[in-house]
Amino acid sequence: MDDFYDRLPLQDAFGTLSDAECYAPLPDDWVVGAADIVGSTQAIAEGRYKTVNMIGAAVISAQINAAEGRAFPFVFGGDGAAFACPQEQAEAAKRALSAVRRWAEEEFGLSLRVALVPVAAIRKAGREVAVARYQASQGVDYAMFIGGGISWAEAQMKRGQYDLPHAPAGTQPDLTGLSCRWSQMKARNGQILSVLIQPEDGAEAAAFAALVDKVLGVVGDLERNGHPAPVDGPGTDWPPAGAEMEARATRGRLTVAKRKRQILFETFMAWVLVKTGLKVGGFDARRYARVVGENADFRKFDDGLKMTLDCDDVTAARLTEVLETARQAGLIRYGTHSQSEAMMTCIVPSIMRDDHVHFIDGATGGYTQAATQIRGAGP
């Protein structure tokens, strides 16, 4: 069994991840999987941002379940996701991608592009896929990617290359653990700012790393580096706004109505425990909420830097000034999107463990909308 990813050291300081020395190239016989929603910008304009995020997270959830406990690198992109796995896992990864593609279309009427690209093909095209593991908390680590290979694979996917077929009609992916039960998180400091920063082709790695360090210095003045989740975790309302969507994702052989009733009961009990502080069967709901915030993925390296920040207007202006100067110098392209709330989509294998993962995005399109605002080099 390939143990490449298991052997990678855990990095516990996010700022160090601007240094390419922290990363290791993926083995040449690995594959990169990618998925994104066709027409996600229009879906968001129609108010379907929770659906878009749920499908993006579903890509990862299906791969986690297909991997059967084996760790592998993945990254959430808002309207899609990317991951990598060894050749021995490729067939299972293909089936899971195809199943999510079928489910997204049948359950939500949204088309999903999916592709599986050999790392060797990425390198032949002159790009690299290198990965590091960032320990966001004691319970969770997230993959960070550099090298341009993920972006290249996604671009090829959008051109129809390395396409995978739909699974047979009626196929349900295994999305056990996928949920969206937390309330949206209102900005405490003025705005939730979604930020995408990508190096221009040919930009020197050292210069881009220096720019990232400057950016992190600016946002480092924010409370908890701009983390959108409060210290005690996101809030809970009842009934949760995402109950029906979660039911449609995780119903298995049940009807949507029956699965929704289960979710409403579970979330009502959790709401009571959070409000009262009572502990049941060793489950401490208030501690769980705190760990959710600690585990949340609000910043990442994904062939560039992506962040969802709870940000004041002064810091946002300073950040824009730094980014605009770097853009005009031909070093980066970047996009931002401001909104009043952030949202969270979760994968929770067990509430009794601390290894649950939580993806944060802006609540009105976040990363997807920021991508539409990308500005490249030039005056």
Rank of each mutant, 00 (worst) to 15 (best):
A99G: 05
P230S: 02
R127A: 09
W152N: 08
V75P: 07
F265S: 06
K94M: 00
A130G: 05
L97P: 10
A153W: 01
Q184H: 14
D19K: 07
G281T: 10
E200R: 04
T308G: 02
D302S: 14
K275D: 10
I351P: 12
T320P: 07
T267R: 11
A20D: 12
Y142S: 03
D312I: 04
R353C: 05
D310G: 06
V231Y: 08
A20Q: 09
A316T: 00
P86S: 05
R251Q: 06
P239V: 01
L216P: 07
Y367N: 11
L175N: 09
V218H: 07
K275R: 15
F268V: 05
N189L: 07
F145R: 04
F265H: 13
H227R: 14
E154M: 13
T176W: 12
S98P: 12
L8W: 12
G378Q: 11
V75E: 04
A115Q: 08
F268L: 10
G376C: 11
R375T: 08
E341M: 11
V195E: 00
R299Q: 14
A34I: 12
A136I: 14
A58F: 00
G282C: 02
D141K: 13
F76I: 03
L112W: 06
I192N: 07
H227C: 15
T250H: 15
Q191F: 09
T336Q: 08
G56P: 02
A285I: 03
D79F: 06
R7M: 01
L331H: 11
R159Y: 06
V348W: 09
A24M: 09
T372N: 15
L97V: 11
E223K: 10
C85E: 13
L193R: 10
D2F: 03
N225F: 01
A104P: 07
G149Y: 02
L17P: 08
C85L: 15
A58K: 08
V256T: 12
E107V: 14
I55Y: 12
K124P: 00
A84V: 08
K186G: 08
R102T: 15
D221P: 07
G282T: 04
A326H: 02
Q369N: 15
Q42P: 04
K214V: 04
A370M: 12
W271R: 09
L196A: 10
G47L: 02
I351K: 14
I150K: 06
A66K: 08
M343K: 00
D19C: 04
C346Y: 13
